[in-house]
Amino acid sequence: MTRITLNVNGADTQLDAPDDMPLLWALRDLMGLTGSKYGCGIGQCGACTVHLNGAPVRSCLVPVSQVSGQAITTIEGLTEDGALHALQQAWIERDVAQCGYCQSGQIMSAAALLQSNAKPTDADIDAAMAGNYCRCGTYIRIREAIHAAAMSFDATAAKGAQS
């Protein structure tokens, strides 16, 4: 057991956790942030995806001791200034989810993609999202929703430029 400071969604939390405990279980069991999901535990499904310093990581593979003090964002922290992220909005409007279990991971991977590439092509989406499995087969809508969110970013930016 080590005392660790985790910076999650902008706030510091002190935790006592075994060094080798994956971040996923610290988030879910010790902090009660259950939005990040356990699907495989071996980095193959993407359900546990969170951002570490802005980059997508599989939290089931990251030992909690290695991320002490670094900026972690989970699905619970994706909203900004009281508004849903454009991706969350697009996901609702396009009714992407079926069972919904993979979707926090899908959205976190997509959010990281849009962060680095505001106008992704289908090929960019394939490359960024291939690590996120969806058993229910919602890939078509995931793709549409990412494009829609990218467009709405664009629209917001255009509006900002006009005013």
Binding site: L33, K37, I75, L78, Q88, W91, I92, G100, S104
Partner: peptide, 17 residues
């Protein structure tokens, strides 16, 4: 849109696990 869409996309989807 599914009635739980908002809960799902904000990580509040209350699954058994």
């Amino acid at each position: 849109s599914q009635v739980d869409s908002l809960a799902i996309v904000t990580g509040q989807g209350d699954f058994g696990i």
